[in-house]
Nucleic acid binder design. Structure first.
Lengths: 247, 247
DNA sequence: TGTACATCAGTGAACGCGCGTTCACTGATGTAC
DNA sequence: TGTACATCAGTGAACGCGCGTTCACTGATGTAC
């Protein structure tokens, strides 16, 4: 499988990288749906038809970008979380959350590709779904460890329907990978998915301009959000624990 | 100020509507950033240059759409909330949340315009900010009424920084309109903003494909989320109240 | 080591298409006397 | 009520631009003998 590293292969590697980097730079200025092969070609100093030696179509380039960006974000979050001592649940949670925001804020074009309006007429193929789940899997792992350590989510609201069937797919997906023990309660899964949604919702509101004139320092605001959704989940300490369902 | 209702004025009104409706239909298929004056003109059976009698530029059309959509969503949420008895806080909250989702899910193109990737090269003018705040103002009002009725948010996490300065802008904006008494605590404002973010984050994840193979019935999932953020805020009952700061 | 052939990267022209915006025009509607 | 003029909606051609993709080609790199 190792490709021969002769002059041709090396040049191909370098130019593929240059095309991807130029395309990612374009995302930030033109937006994902206006990504243009011709503009990218111009940026790397090629004639537009030459790009077809590297990517068979604009859609293929989009797919490569999607995979690369999901993997970059996933790796950033995984690495930040892995650098914290295993028993420091709150530290792991905050590190993961902050890495998530930092990556996105530093790469607004990439963020728009991943979490903004889908590109009309483009359907992401299967290859993108596994990389897309790396972030939420980190969050799930921390929540699972918290549960195992006797720290659970806040109790569900009175009168709420049983959510077990709602999150059955998520639980099955995650259980296949051995991330959550079968004993973690539905409410923990629900709160993890809500935290995941809230974290990306907060970044989306920040980058898409909905926090203008609403919150001040955006990094501190994100921390405040991360702490609260972490507390609701049980990975961050709460002032007065109402006696959750944790063992 | 009342325009004369002669044949010309009536035709102008009708055609302006037709252009706006055709443009909103286009949003759903082509995406906001690919909105094209020529395509809209074709859809209403006009020659492209005729549209310039109604909107001086593509950007002006975008602005009109933004205002119309924010107002439509805002009115839908306000009306749903106003239809519930004032003392039924939980009912008002759920009605507002559900109206929010229903409006968006029925109009994915409009949602993408309002909360998706901003259109590159277009800067929304001042006229759009007031309509943009109608939804969050409804949420703030319910939270304020809950506080006045002695129901407050869950306690903030231990070790959290004081968030007062973070949300000072939001509080000032909302206080100007008499929506929150000066006694509502910072934590209530923080939790309201988080709820607002989470609700739109949930819709965004649903419409942009991030809940695929993760949660089942989307309407029930949204309800589950709305109940929980409502409970965190104090507008929905909690199983065991840890004794919040409510009076 | 040298030669013959195969592979591949990059070129430049072309295809057919769509875009926002301007402009001089025609013909209908509205207004002042 | 009728006439003269002003206003306005819509037309069609044109401007200069960009797009994705195909194709026959040149020339460099790699491989087999």
């Amino acid at each position: 499988m190792a490709a021969p590293r002769n002059a041709r292969a090396l040049a191909r590697e370098t130019l593929t990288r240059e095309i991807l980097d130029a395309a990612r730079a374009r995302l930030a200025t033109d937006g994902p749906s206006a990504l243009s092969l011709r503009a990218v070609a111009r940026d790397v100093g090629m004639v537009s038809s030459a790009v077809y030696r590297y990517f068979p179509s604009r859609d293929a380039l989009l797919t490569a970008l999607l995979v690369e960006c999901y993997d970059g974000l996933g790796a950033a979050v995984e690495d930040a979380e892995a650098a914290v001592a295993r028993d420091d649940l709150e530290g792991r949670w905050l590190a993961a959350c902050r890495a998530l925001r930092s990556w996105c804020v530093a790469r607004p074009g990439d963020f728009a590709l991943l979490y903004g309006t889908p590109v009309p007429g483009y359907a992401a193929p299967r290859d993108t779904v596994e990389p897309a789940t790396r972030v939420v899997r980190v969050l799930v792992r921390i929540a699972g460890d918290a549960w195992a350590a006797g720290r659970g989510p806040v109790p569900e609201p009175v009168g709420a329907d049983d959510a077990t069937v709602l999150v059955a797919d998520a639980r099955a997906y995650v259980a296949e990978r051995g991330l959550v023990g079968p004993d973690a309660p539905t409410e923990s899964v629900v709160r993890t998915l809500i935290a995941w949604t809230t974290l990306f919702g907060t970044v989306s509101f920040e980058l898409f301009g909905h926090l203008e004139r609403t919150v001040g320092d955006r990094a501190s605001w994100f921390d405040a959000v991360a702490l609260r959704v972490g507390a609701d989940l049980g990975v961050v300490g709460r002032a007065a624990d109402p006696g959750s369902g944790a063992p």
